[in-house]
Design a protein around this nucleic acid. Structure first.
Lengths: 269, 269
DNA sequence: CGGAACATTGAGAGGGATCAATGGACGTGG
DNA sequence: CCACGTCCATTGATCCCTCTCAATGTTCCG
């Protein structure tokens, strides 16, 4: 088999998606003056993240709520099961997994999160976190103290609705995972997973056909309800069928349509 | 095999759980005067439902927000996928399932809901519902227009936090379903399901060991990621092992501990 | 009473798990 | 820069749990 060369497009800085061009010079000016102060205004993922759709002024208000930026080393946790819930975390850079643990030690990856996504909403319900959020690469998050969020809900018109939307989106996402786990075969699961990942990366300015997986086969398997060997076999199968190219964690999607077809056209043997 | 007799404890009116006894006379007084007006104050599930933890006055405010009571016949929907999202629905009586549909027709039961639980949170994210909510028996729900909820968030201290908690609780619930679907065997799934159901029913004043299933084997199977035949076989297996008694949809749990042990002590063959 | 919907049970097949061995990639330190 | 160990991924052989297909039985309701 030929060696394939895949550029690690994800390593490079992505083109900022959907940024209003008239803001760019302003943005640069502020970056210089504000130096290390956190500012949603200058954040490359502000269109997808918490301040999505906000006015410039409201973004500034939000920035002021954000207590701190926090670096998380690969393998480290943002929070763990049982820890007190105090804040939500918006991902600036890096890639995470969340895992829930059963009493007997089994654990289940419940999601993979990337830039602009929010970590920690599980903790609101009981004031204790119910899962672990673990960085799969060195990462950078905004710490948003939850009690301050309630202040901003009063100050910023429509922010409360916005928070509800974020949480609802998570509920809807989990519904589709339940559909995946409850009714799809191994190949369908992996296809759905790859398409979801690449679509989210694309929304962040990355390629719509190439991606670098930040997780192991085992972590993918846990998320997809499969064993790592099965995940590996499905990768090989897709390669044999010419649907993708795989070299370790680099994946190039050659036939997205065929993958999508797999997901949405179930047929028994 | 002996015929077993199970009383349909669920059909009978449950004892109201955890109701402060000094409120009862007051409650009765109001029931008489307010006749058919919706009143959280007099609702038997107020301690578990939306007004959980609220003061008497705040409950009254909430009641005033609730536009209407809506009857839903068995088999009918409260809302369907694609319909515009306008309101949340608090279940007064009855039992529901929610289902998401894949493009190819497959559908997946994402949850079963009973009195005091909230339907419709999936719709907040996009202003369109993303699943169907179907009554499994004649039911009665409170319609809570969503825009009014935002009003009450401003008026009632802490209500916003309360809403967040409700949504977070749903997220956490779905995490445990993902754990179930992703890592448990058929018998473990059914055991976890039965224990969850009976625990929720118990919180509503029903027996902690007997229940009447409102859904078919197929609906259970869909929720649990199993085929109906497998569900049926697991019921038979539990019966043979003396863990439960089953007669059609009536189930009596004989050895809850053994069921719990199944769930939390996974062992390979 | 009869029909439809639902549930049980059996036999057989298949998809994914398990067990096991090998191979590659990567980081660390010599 | 190479050697080495560790972690990760691939692949094969076999097993078994769950699905599939099919027949029968039961309940419920018009």
């Amino acid at each position: 088999m030929d060696k394939i060369m895949l550029q690690a497009t994800q390593s490079a800085s992505p083109v900022s998606p959907a940024i209003n061009s008239h803001l760019v010079t302003f943005q640069n000016a502020r970056t210089a003056s504000a130096s290390y102060k956190l500012a949603c205004n200058t954040c490359s993922v502000r269109q997808l993240c918490m301040p999505m759709g906000m006015s410039f002024d409201d973004m500034e208000r939000l920035s002021n709520m954000v207590a701190a930026r926090k670096r998380v080393k690969k393998g480290a946790t943002v929070y763990r099961t049982g820890e007190e819930f105090t804040a939500l975390y918006a991902i600036r850079t890096g890639f995470f997994k969340t895992t829930v643990a059963a009493e007997d030690g089994r654990d289940q990856v419940t999601g993979f999160q990337m830039a602009a996504e929010i970590l920690g909403m599980d903790g609101i319900s009981t004031n204790r976190h119910t899962c672990d959020a673990i960085a799969l690469e060195d990462a950078d998050v905004c710490v948003i103290p939850f009690n301050r969020l309630e202040d901003i809900s009063r100050e910023v018109e429509g922010f409360s609705r916005h928070m509800h939307r974020l949480m609802s989106r998570e509920i809807v996402r989990e519904h589709s995972v339940m559909l995946l786990l409850g009714s799809m075969r191994a190949d369908e699961r992996l296809a759905a997973f790859l398409l979801d990942l690449v679509q989210r990366l694309h929304a962040r300015g990355y390629s719509s056909s190439e991606l670098v997986l930040r997780m192991t086969r085992e972590e993918m398997g846990s998320y997809l309800g499969l064993k790592l060997e099965t995940v590996s076999r499905m990768f090989s199968k897709f390669m044999d069928e010419g649907l993708i190219e795989v070299k370790q964690r680099h994946v190039r999607i050659l036939d997205a349509q065929a993958l999508a077809h797999l997901v949405s056209h179930h047929h028994t043997h």
